[in-house]
Structures are given as C-alpha cells and as structure tokens.
Computed example of a mutant assay.
Amino acid sequence: MGQFDKAEDIYQVLLDQTKNDKDKAPIDVYLGMIKVDPGKYQEALTFYEKSLSVFQKTLPSNHPDLATTYNNIALEIQQQSLPSNHPDLGSSYNIIGLVQEDMVDYSEACKFYEREGVG
C-alpha cells in the first residue's frame, strides 16, 4: 500500500521484542522486502543476508525458506547491477513467483509475475 515507513516501524518493534534469532529471521525477510520497493537495495540485501545466516543454522538444507532467501539475495544484486528491463531480472521474478506459488502464497506470487510482465 506504499506505507513503507509505517510497515518498517511495525516490523522494527516486532524485531526488538523478539528474543530468539530463529524468530527474528522471518522479520528480517519482511524488512528486506519493505526496502525493495523504494529502491533501497543495499539495505534490503543486508536484511536478507541476516535472515539467511539464521536460516542456514536452523533449517534443513532443502527448506523452501532458504531457496526464497537465496533468490531474494540474487534479485537484490541483479536489481543493483542490471537495467530494469534486463531479461535476467524477468527470469528472477518468474522463479520467485513460482516458489511463492508452490508455497501457496498466491498474493506474493502475483507481485513477482506482474514485475515480470506475466500477471
């Protein structure tokens, strides 16, 4: 809805109230997602890397949250280094959309399909 600052404030409060790193990791993912739309890619990357570090320690190596986080990190790097109409970005949006769809998170999947031009 475009209220990135408000969403960030809410997630930051949740993060501050959470004691366990395993419970903080998904919040870091959401904070990273909040940073993407306004183009704060380096900040998003930092949040994704924090969550990945925790996920690698606490989840099995084939867990879908790991795949999603790896894709988010790759996407952040591509968004920083490629023009917005580059085909590799479209492929990344499509892959992330497919992962979200497989996880039955259709609203998130639609966001990535729309970016790719499929939706």
Rank of each mutant, 00 (worst) to 15 (best):
A109M: 03
Q78P: 08
E101T: 10
V104N: 14
P26D: 06
N20T: 10
N62P: 15
I96Q: 13
D28Q: 12
L82Y: 05
I34R: 00
Q3D: 03
Q42Y: 10
S51I: 04
K19H: 13
G32Q: 06
Y70K: 03
K40P: 04
P60W: 14
I95A: 15
E43T: 00
L14E: 12
Q78H: 07
Y48T: 00
A109F: 02
I95T: 15
F112S: 01
F55T: 08
N20V: 06
K35L: 07
N20C: 08
I95S: 14
Q80S: 07
N94A: 10
E76D: 14
S107Q: 15
Y41P: 00
S61H: 15
I27P: 06
V36H: 04
P83V: 05
I73A: 08
P87E: 10
L45H: 02
D102G: 15
Q79W: 05
D9Y: 00
K35E: 09
Y113D: 03
D5P: 12
D88H: 10
V36G: 02
G119E: 08
K57Y: 14
Q42F: 09
R115Q: 02
D37G: 12
N71P: 13
P87V: 04
K50A: 03
M33F: 02
V29L: 01
E108A: 15
G119Y: 11
P38F: 08
G90V: 10
G119F: 00
Y106V: 07
P64C: 13
M33W: 07
S51L: 07
N72L: 07
T69I: 01
L89S: 04
N72M: 04
A44N: 02
L59Y: 09
Y113F: 04
D21Q: 13
V104M: 14
V99C: 13
A109R: 07
T46H: 08
Y48N: 05
Y41I: 00
P38C: 11
D88K: 11
L52R: 03
I34D: 04
